[in-house]
């Protein structure tokens, strides 16, 4: 009985001490949004397209049906749209694009007031509208 009590107190004390020691450690959290951590290059955020030739592969690998594009008579891409309401940021489109035209940027704060702002339209597959 005595030993049991002793062991229990010892275990409790050890636990308390371990927790107590943490008081003197540096904080590991950041005060978001004042401070942000640095993201790495591989991060998959908002997609961006530049230099698309309109082969259609991205559309076929996209699980969410978030991609739409249009070509004119000459076969040039005149309209390219990501629907961020549907996009799940899986990165399939960027991985399979034969031209490397899609980049996943590190932008992740995508909340908007107006939901049309979530349609990313790129004219000519080049510049951001």
């Amino acid at each position: 009985m005595c030993i049991k009590v002793f062991n229990s107190v010892k275990a409790l004390w050890e636990g308390m001490w371990t927790v107590f020691k943490h008081l003197f450690k540096r904080a590991v959290t950041l005060e978001y949004p004042e401070k942000r951590r640095k993201l790495n290059d591989a991060f998959r955020g908002k997609p961006l397209v530049e230099g698309c030739i309109g082969c259609g592969i991205c559309k076929r690998v996209c699980p969410a049906g978030a991609i739409e594009y249009e070509k004119n008579e000459d076969g040039k891409v005149v309209f390219y749209k990501f629907d961020l309401k549907k996009c799940i940021f899986c990165g399939n489109c960027a991985f399979y694009c034969p031209k490397g035209a899609i980049k996943m940027t590190d932008e992740y704060e995508l909340a908007v007031q107006d939901k049309d702002g979530l349609n990313l339209v790129y004219k000519g597959g080049a510049e951001n509208d």
């Binding site: 993201l39 591989a42 991060f43 998959r44 940021f89 899986c90 990165g91 991985f95």
Partner: peptide, 20 residues
């Protein structure tokens, strides 16, 4: 995981025949 795959939980890293 984020460094390697691009996201913290939804990795999409393994791929048919290998890894990304």
């Amino acid at each position: 995981f984020e460094k390697i795959t691009g996201q913290r939980m939804m990795y999409n890293y393994f791929i048919f025949g290998g890894v990304r």
